[in-house]
Design a protein around this nucleic acid. Structure first.
Lengths: 248, 248
DNA sequence: ACAGATCAGTGTAAGGCACGAACAGTTTTC
DNA sequence: GAAAACTGTTCGTGCCTTACACTGATCTGT
């Protein structure tokens, strides 16, 4: 089921994700479960124990099966992780499609990214090694391209915008998640208490001032901070659209 | 040497990084090496085998020592990783200080981030779980704040800009690094070959068009692509500065 | 000067991980 | 009915982090 020779050399798991495996040979006993079930169980483990706590035995345990049984469905853990990331981000948001213009669409898209990342924080820990090639992730890109269509930008420019907002959403979500974690919050404030006296003396006056003032606010990431960077990027894109328009 | 009770509750490795360990009790035999030497060796291992290939035994081997000996200097691997990241990014770039205005400074800062990330690609794989608290990383922030001083923005705004450019630099560097890796490049083009026929039929027309056109360019990340997002962000910041100025 | 506290590095072991290979049982096809 | 294909299990390899007991070297107070 797994060792399809036609697609060797593919990045792991892609063929699986698109459901084009060679469902020809149906000879042995019926599989006890499916790749979808495995991914589902993996999501549960990641939700419960984070990306670092994800292991094949733990996934298998949820399916009532030995760890090695999973390798009948999947070539490697890395392959599973690709599918896991796809499941974690999930399908692209519908709200983008309903936006009236590119700016609203991009705003919704970015907010949705952040929301999804916070719903499954471990997606931020999944290393990104390739362009999006799984269905949902391609869906997010398609969704973005659709929303940006009326901006009148070229493909290269639009793709650049996607990279820009994607990176921003990940940064913000990562920061917000760190702040939300109670353990980290305590540790961070302890670190601040330790650092603040040092910073001024060691040649970091601006950082010292900044952290002093921030120390009182850092309970939670205010919505304003999320919107800040987003608006900067969108303003920058708007400027670009103006330039491209007059260039023509 | 390591078990300083005054700083318990601190995120791992911070006290070490700032060199404020309690160098009082000097009783036993002299240490064969130092935390700096360990970090140095760790950098070598990471350069050679990547972040995933980093392990305590391998680091210790370079120092002619058993793996467990390192735990006399360091509490956990995670602690070492914090110091490793600090060493990987290195000191903030001097070029920012010489920039004449905030825009040039921010440009230099971001380019330097990307350059450093490409010099030690494993820094991108180090999970970011706290605000910058190690000397070099704080240095980068200080350096940015200094460069942005003449923009006249408030602390909150300036910090937002830093987050913005930091996220962008990491995104771009990550993408560039992926493309540079020969193995990945081959795999990605194989994936494209597999995906392109599918995309159109499955409801991703825009992505299909995009990837078709991109397929010929994707050899390397052109410098233009790097500058693109940077200029969008800077334009957006410029707009903000204008707004804040008239608000006053 | 010497005794004891203290700290360095080693050895060993426990527990966990990804993964490979041989195996036994089940279901389909010829 | 036999052979082939496919299933999950078991056992084994080689990694890894971390805990803990232990041997020696070295410094401090007396």
């Amino acid at each position: 089921m797994v060792d399809d020779k036609r697609h060797t050399g593919l990045p792991p798991g892609i063929a699986l994700a698109w459901g084009v495996m060679p469902s020809a040979g149906r000879r042995g006993p019926k599989p006890a479960f499916s790749v979808e079930r495995i991914v589902e169980a993996a999501v549960e483990v990641a939700d419960a124990e984070g990306f670092a706590g994800l292991s094949m035995p733990k996934i298998a345990e949820r399916l009532g099966v030995t760890g090695n049984a999973l390798y009948r469905y999947i070539r490697s853990k890395e392959e599973l992780v690709v599918l896991l990331a796809d499941a974690g981000w999930g399908p692209p948001p519908e709200s983008v499609r309903q936006a009236g213009n590119w700016r609203d669409a991009a705003t919704e898209w970015t907010r949705a990214m952040i929301a999804r990342a916070l719903a499954h924080p471990w997606v931020l820990d999944v290393p990104v090694h390739t362009a999006p090639v799984t269905p949902h992730l391609v869906g997010w890109l398609e969704c973005f391209l659709e929303g940006m269509a009326d901006a009148g930008l070229g493909e290269q420019d639009t793709l650049g915008c996607a990279l820009l907002l994607d990176g921003y959403a990940r940064s913000v979500a990562n920061l917000a998640h760190s702040l939300n974690q109670s353990g980290r919050a305590k540790a961070t404030s302890a670190a601040l208490e330790f650092l603040l006296p040092l910073l001024g003396d060691r040649g970091y006056p601006r950082t010292a001032a900044l952290m002093t003032n921030m120390a009182y606010i850092e309970d939670d990431l205010p919505q304003g901070d999320v919107e800040f960077g987003l608006n900067r990027i969108l303003d920058g894109i708007e400027t670009l659209i103006g330039e491209r328009g007059t260039e023509h």
